[in-house]
Design a protein around this nucleic acid. Structure first.
Length: 424
RNA sequence: GGAGAGGUGGCAGAGUGGUCGAAUGCGCCGCACUCGAAAUGCGGUAUACUCGCAAGGGUAUCGGGAGUUCGAAUCUCCCCCUCUCCGCCA
């Protein structure tokens, strides 16, 4: 959620930057918010001053009662009763303004950082880094879904029987590889100074709102009606919400947390070749890194996180590229996002495996996540997160890129985690 | 799931209808005393919105929400959470 003060003081800039993020009629939206804000403040000033009167009268009644002057108190009571009616109406109006203002404000996406390139589609994203070479596969090379069944690593049909499409069953070396990757990612994150946490994978509405999934992504999350809980689409939600309604000391920043969780996404509306095999699942595993940073250096933190993720991909010997997302392709809450894509040799396409973002104060404004320097005034912290990494497409690329006629050879860093070098 | 007790400021803890945003203690910050420290004394020490150039005002908040009342931390209702006992259970 954008800060109202900022919009108030920077109307032109807000409109211009929203437009860069592909918001249509940004000027109309912003002006409607400013008008509603003015309404709200007018109503509040009026309401506050009437309440002050009412409080004063109530105090006088108290004094008169104590002094035994019951008759005089009666007069004041009548006065107060009349005032109360006015206040009640005014408060209803004020509450209406506040609700409307909040609803409008919550619809606005975050403003893009000035380095974010303009554009509306993935074609407009800027490639800022490339690493590795695409392996030349042998004649009989096949996509990962064929390898998965050839070596009995993943059973997609069995998942359909148990749950439905998009819920695969990992078996044998396939299951072991999952566990190996999770441990490898967590060990690396811990070594980089992230505190490992194991959060709940169901969250309440407040948490969903805090990180921006609600109301924006309402229909994309699984919902447990009986208990009014959401299955998390990413560990970002519970981990970041640890710091909801928290005031940190500046010395505590940056806070670095990491965690493994399964992630659940309804992916309503997805179709076609994108969803084949491991490319898009309803349930998948991911290790997430989260930082709460001082606004003064949050962009250095973003670079640090991006390089950390790149290091993982290098260690896995996967060819990848880093994209700086354009305004139109960025997520709702982000100010600047790097996507990491690995090249899947058998599918001949890039697969997104990580997204690293700085949300600036967009989430912390909703979360009421603040920090204080010394005894000074509180200010909103910046939040950042990144996948480090999401498993399915990593597995897809590992299987496809490393396939040989003799089997699949796993990268060296994984051997101590898997206990085997070859899948054959 | 059932029964009971409870949820007050950074912490502990008082407050059961009226100048209570809230005693007191601890902690923390500042000042004084001191060569320095301790001890002591004095002052300060929540968050948000809002008015104001500022100084300084106003409003709201005692787990959350709704209500009764001229007036609610205090009374009523609903919800959440914690503890104790019973039941059930991976």
């Amino acid at each position: 959620m954008l800060q109202l003060n900022f919009i108030r003081d920077n109307r032109e800039e807000t409109i211009q930057r929203l437009t860069k993020k592909n918001v249509k009629n940004a000027d109309v939206l912003v002006d409607a918010i400013l008008a509603k804000d003015a309404d709200r403040r007018r109503a509040q000033v009026e309401s506050d001053s009437l309440k002050a009167d009412a409080n004063q009268i109530a105090g006088q009644i108290g004094n008169l009662m104590k002094a035994g002057k019951k008759d005089e108190a009666e007069d004041f009571k009548n006065k107060s009763t009349a005032l109360k009616e006015t206040i009640k109406n005014l408060e209803a109006t004020l509450a209406g303004f506040e609700t409307e203002l909040h609803e409008m404000l919550v619809q606005l996406p975050n403003l893009p950082h000035h380095e974010v390139p303009p554009g509306r589609t993935p074609e407009d994203n800027a490639v800022v880094f490339e690493h590795g070479t695409v392996p030349a596969l042998y004649e009989g090379a096949v996509p990962h879904w064929d390898l998965a069944s050839k070596y009995d690593l993943i059973d997609f049909e069995l998942g359909v029987k148990l749950t439905g499409a998009g819920f695969p069953v990992y078996k044998g070396k396939g299951a072991r590889l999952q566990r190996a990757l999770i441990n490898f990612f967590l060990d690396r994150a811990t070594a980089a100074g992230y505190l490992e946490v194991q959060p709940p994978i169901l969250v309440n509405k407040d948490s969903g709102f805090g990180t921006g999934q609600l109301p924006d992504k309402e229909g994309q999350m699984y919902y447990v009606n009986e208990d009014e809980l959401y299955l998390i689409p990413t560990a970002e939600v519970p981990i970041t919400n640890i710091y909801r309604d928290v005031i940190l000391q500046a010395e505590e920043l940056p806070v670095k947390n990491c965690g493994y969780t399964p992630c659940f996404r309804r992916e309503a509306g997805s179709y076609g070749k994108d969803v084949r095999g491991l490319n898009r699942l309803h349930q998948f595993d991911k290790v997430e890194i989260v930082q709460v940073a001082n606004p003064a250096n949050s962009y250095e933190v973003l670079e640090e996180m991006r390089h950390f993720v790149a290091g993982l991909l290098k260690d896995l010997d996967l060819p990848f590229r880093t994209l700086l997302l354009c305004g139109g392709d960025m997520s709702f809450a982000s100010a600047k996002t790097y996507d990491m894509e690995v090249f899947s040799a058998a599918q001949q396409r890039w697969l997104e495996v990580s997204s690293v973002s700085n949300f600036e104060s967009f989430q912390s404004n909703r979360l009421k996540l603040r920090f204080r320097e010394g005894t000074g005034k509180t200010q909103l912290a910046h939040t950042l997160n990144g996948s480090a990494l999401a498993l399915p497409r990593i597995v897809a690329a590992l299987l496809e890129n490393n396939q040989t006629p003799e089997g699949i050879r796993l990268p060296d860093v994984l051997h101590r985690y898997t206990g085997f070098e070859w899948i054959n």
